[in-house]
Simulated scan of single mutants.
Amino acid sequence: MAKKNINEMSFLDHLEDLRWHLIRIVLAIVIVGAVAFISSRFIFDEIIFAPLEMDFPTYDFLCRCANFINVDTTFCGEKIPLILQNRTMAGQFSADIWTAVLGGFILSFPYVIYQFWKFISPAMHSNERKHSRGFIIVSSLLFFIGVLFGYYIICPLSINFLANYSISKMVDNQIDISSYIGLVRNSVLASGLIFELPIIIFFLTKVGLVTPEFLRKYRKYALVIVLILSAIITPPDIASQVIVAIPILVLYQVSIFISKMVIRNQRRKEKVRV
């Protein structure tokens, strides 16, 4: 059966269309997640648990920097003072399943974005569809950069700080596996989504909810929010918060530029119509 024109579709037709797009997204995540589940030993040993080894690239780089300026640091230690434990019967199985789901979502993210684009594209003009196709590549690229930033910056900084933080020598850090994986998952996923800020601003500007003037006016408030956000997703030390805050602030500035470009293009189209 031929697909109805968007102008002929009722509210229920739109819901049915959205349902099929969501089904395709879930199937993609499940299929890729199944592959990740089969490869779980490699994922855990070589990716998830890699920040627990002192030869992790981030530790090696920061240790070299500390040695260059002659500063003592925990990044040059022999090992992370942390022992992972499983305290529940289904703990390791649950960790395996949810890690596979997360891996499925991350790896299939371009397809997820594509399906959302397929849902909203019929409402666009032909020239808008032509110019917006690149956003799938851009949004996927930003997401993967954010994931890498979370994995190589936020994760090792958080793990190193929290593992070496001690209130007494009487206390050993014996961490439940769910707590450790939760830290890695939240750091990676939060960073990936935060790096989507320019894309979000683009669409908010397109629908008229955001303007460059609005973003400039509330820039100082955005700075406070960024610092609070950095404090939430990183350990409570100034250096880590600054490292996380800088790229977010850069993304905010890029978002202002994107919003400005969208407004400029809209005004040009209005002049052409007149």
Rank of each mutant, 00 (worst) to 15 (best):
F109M: 06
I31A: 08
R268Y: 14
S39H: 15
D13G: 02
L102R: 03
F56D: 05
N186D: 12
V30K: 02
N70P: 01
N127I: 14
I29E: 06
A95M: 11
L107A: 11
E213W: 14
F61D: 09
I238D: 02
P235V: 01
I225E: 10
I225F: 08
R19T: 12
A95P: 01
Y252T: 03
L157V: 00
A28R: 08
K79F: 12
V32F: 02
D72Q: 14
K3C: 15
R185M: 04
E270L: 05
F42A: 05
I232C: 04
T58V: 11
F75L: 15
T74I: 03
D17W: 15
A2L: 08
L209V: 03
S168H: 10
G150Y: 00
V71Y: 14
S139N: 09
V32Y: 00
L197T: 04
M261G: 05
I258M: 10
I248Q: 00
K217F: 08
S10R: 04
I43D: 04
I194V: 10
Y180C: 04
N127F: 10
V184M: 07
T73I: 04
L62H: 14
V171S: 10
P236V: 08
G146S: 01
Y218A: 08
F257I: 15
F49G: 00
N86K: 15
I38Y: 13
A222W: 12
N265G: 07
F161L: 00
P212C: 11
L204M: 13
F44Q: 04
H125W: 15
R264C: 12
M9A: 15
R185Q: 12
P110G: 14
L15Q: 13
G91H: 01
A66Q: 02
E270Q: 07
F144A: 10
D45L: 15
Y221F: 13
T88E: 12
S179C: 11
F143C: 02
R268N: 13
F119I: 15
L15E: 13
Q241H: 12
D172N: 12
R273V: 08
A36G: 09
M170I: 09
